[in-house]
Design a binder for these strands. Structure first.
Lengths: 158, 158
DNA sequence: CTTTTTATGTCAATATATTTACATTCTTCG
DNA sequence: CGAAGAATGTAAATATATTGACATAAAAAG
């Protein structure tokens, strides 16, 4: 019997997660942005979220807890990259939106640095390799969501 | 042009990392063990490390910082799952080793829970799927190590 | 043999991440 | 309408994770 493939797969995923945060944060070091802030800012540049997105929806999109986002958003707000506005139709809900400064940081500074980073981190990956890897990540992600009581009701397809 | 594949791949990897920690920690909830402690204990059960492994070597193996391990090891030591002994030939070095209690926790409680978790998280994955996914994770991991100044000199093959 | 450099582990500061608890506000039901 | 219930965001406690700084000890240099 070969060494346990499932165990090997998960250990590699664990190592990849560690290295992604380490190398990713270092790639954006000069802009003082972490991978989590990167994920948030990247989400906010999506056309669908340009008008603002609620904290809960953003948390579901990124697959982190609402409570976690509070801290990240506070730091981004303190750096004036993001602003919180009260939703018109719901006084509980805060709509998170990029500021002009945030949009500029993304377009002028982060986007090129991220492109360079992808270039290096995915060196040797053909288009087919990327598609296959995304396929497997989607596959395991669906299983994770089925395992997670918080996500299992959310009906958005992958 | 399709939506940027590299960006999509990294976003999925980011989501997978979040979900792996969330669902993994929940799977071992009743044993009060997190995914990081799981990784450490799992490493220490390897035959090669049974006699004890230095903090720096363990950090390199798990691909986390030495400084980070200090905290995890302290908590595991406080729970008596792990012990630190001074290396015979080097008074700076601490050899980390599983205690009997730690070995028992792993074999009696964690191993079965982990097997169940793998079963669910990898549902629908054939042996070939796992092998392919491991291949891609290894591939990206090599690129990450090339990007990381700390790991680049370490000569251990994947 | 002393001085310098390197290796090893830990501490401190900062940023995630989780769960639990809670204040507000909206919704629903009587 | 008024009370129970659910939804929304945040605060607090705990556990990772990082880098920078440091004490100690080994190794290398002179």
């Amino acid at each position: 019997m070969p060494p346990d493939l499932s165990n090997r797969l998960f250990f590699r995923l664990y190592q990849c997660a560690n290295m992604m945060h380490k190398t990713g944060t270092r790639a954006l070091e000069e802009h003082h942005v972490t991978t989590q802030q990167w994920a948030v800012l990247g989400a906010l540049t999506r056309p669908a979220f340009e008008a603002g997105i609620a904290v809960g929806d953003l948390a579901a999109f990124l697959m982190v807890s609402r409570q976690n986002l509070t801290g990240v958003l506070s730091r981004l707000e303190a750096m004036h990259y993001v602003e919180r506005t009260v939703a018109e139709n719901d006084n509980r809900s805060r709509l998170i939106r990029l500021t002009d400064k945030g949009r500029s940081l993304w377009g002028e500074n982060m986007r090129p640095a991220i492109a360079d980073y992808y270039e290096e981190a995915l060196e040797g990956f053909s288009t087919d390799d990327k598609i296959h890897m995304i396929h497997y990540l989607n596959k395991i992600l669906r299983n994770f969501k089925a395992l997670d009581p918080d996500s299992s009701r959310s009906s958005e397809p992958l």
